[in-house]
Write a protein that binds this DNA or RNA. Sequence first.
DNA 1: CCGATTAATGTACGCGCGTACATTTTCTCA
DNA 2: TGAGAAAATGTACGCGCGTACATTAATCGG
Lengths: 332, 332
Amino acid sequence: MRKLVAEMAGVSEATVSRVFSGSDTVKENTRSKVLKAAQELGYVPNELARQLARKKSGNLGVILPYVPKARLFSTYYFYEMLGGISEAAQEHGVNLLLLHRKPDENGNYELLFRQQKVDGLIVLGAREVTEEREELLQMDAEGRPFAFVNQRMDGLEHRAVEADHRRGSFLACAHLLEQGWDKPAFVKGPGDFSNTLDRLEGFRDALPDELKTSHAELQGNYSRTSGLALAEEAASLLRSGIADAFAAANDRMAIGLLQGLKQRGFEAGQDYGLTGFDDSDGARLTDPALTSIAASFFETGREAALIALKVNSTPAAKLPVQLVVRESSLRG
Amino acid sequence: MRKLVAEMAGVSEATVSRVFSGSDTVKENTRSKVLKAAQELGYVPNELARQLARKKSGNLGVILPYVPKARLFSTYYFYEMLGGISEAAQEHGVNLLLLHRKPDENGNYELLFRQQKVDGLIVLGAREVTEEREELLQMDAEGRPFAFVNQRMDGLEHRAVEADHRRGSFLACAHLLEQGWDKPAFVKGPGDFSNTLDRLEGFRDALPDELKTSHAELQGNYSRTSGLALAEEAASLLRSGIADAFAAANDRMAIGLLQGLKQRGFEAGQDYGLTGFDDSDGARLTDPALTSIAASFFETGREAALIALKVNSTPAAKLPVQLVVRESSLRG
DNA sequence: CCGATTAATGTACGCGCGTACATTTTCTCA
DNA sequence: TGAGAAAATGTACGCGCGTACATTAATCGG
């Protein structure tokens, strides 16, 4: 095929290749002859062969956690992230290879590189277990370009892209206090995610000293259902006056809590203050609408892509967060 | 590399290849020798080279519509679909190549095949314009394996995977009537999507003859905002008694409507009946929760993948839908 | 124990490109 | 106008695998 084009254009195959590889130095005249011939013959370079010859797959891999029917994590979160990654990928002319990690199985990330399936890798939702950490450490040692998101792992700080969760939580708590809710409690996620801890600390940061150690905490698992299940406990905190507001570590739990408390006669914004975290789509669907923290997952994904593509070698500072005020936290 | 493995195992390179390509006929003895050698040297076949030699990219392409910051389409919809596609892809050992279509630009789908970037293609949210249709028709003529979803195009019925929207709308409307709302109105999406029409027809199917031509219709664009904007119009329909319920063509519009009507003092389930369509995550977040139609996008994606992988050549019958009753439609 | 089958392995080459190096053409400047 | 430098093109080969075909080893029947 390439040969035919070469003949028709009266040049060598190498020249054809040059034309399509972004000119080294081809005379304008011959370039157009080649393009014309290619056009007529319908020739297009075979990407596979190119990649082999160049020793670059041109793919950016994205590892998604296995999502069983019941969506464990927020759809919103991943889809936004993917959008940001995709944008960066497109700008740099690479393809996106989507890889759903199997339930328990290790990622075997290194393998993807050795097989030349990807040139870079983004791990969304890495499992925070030793095995996983070691695998990532090894990858780093081998000098593979990769990045992960909203997590922290010792010795891999330069691979981590994350929003400033701590500050986000701080903003939420400060806002509650400012609104006159002076006994905010915190709704935690599972303790083995690093950003769960950040969000808790940020919350404490905003608390006056006397409350720093004595505030109430509820334990959820980031699902709406878990929020719903905490409603009874929350209600009794409200009744006993131990708490008059809740800052939840994510929107889904906040929404569940809002719904559960409503069933028990407590209205957010009226009878208690409530904030979520993520500013997900759902935040504006509840009644009252949920005050939340926007962490720009789109940007987070984008940043991660740039690192995995070795465009940004410096790990960006923590990405900014923003308080989005809606009714659930407003007194009145 | 392969050569080293061959030497260490005391066989030829071809035999090494045979071992890794799923045995033709290799003696168990030599197989293990080869595997051992490969293990020790850390050899793994290069996928790129394999693909080139086999003339198969091993990739299933997924075209996503460009999603600007403001999410035009339902995140939920696409993410579910992706999940189904991914499951099928994994089962058949192919990779998923994600491609975001640029804003206006044509897909140039055929090119992806000619470049050997993909072996099959799934188009999510094809634009329903002549250009696009022609491109798809051409692809079909060239015998490329592909599928698209929840749309209809003349001459491409065997490429379309869709849920039974018409029946879904029928169920919604029938349910409203059964609940004693006897003047349901329909909230349409943009008229140039084929399934918008299906949903309207299904709605009519359920109507008693005298209403089939005289029911009210509102025109939205599938966004929540558009639902919100229709609230005033809807309110006057309610006040004048022209309508006492609304079946919306999707959840987002229904949710907007619900919120807008609430502002005007109308409570869903109380003062009027309301159903959505999609059974999105948001349906269970509103107050009252939204009755909706579940169309199993996961399954839809899965089916589409099977067709694009030539596993299922027969286009499946329309996928089943299901009425999910929540409070918004229940008289009470 | 030997020829005829059949199983197992080896040899050789192509897949379609990029690119180092060699060669030819064009340009520069005296 | 011609030597030398620079630009343009051609030649040759490798990227790492799969596989058709040739070759050798194992098996079997008599």
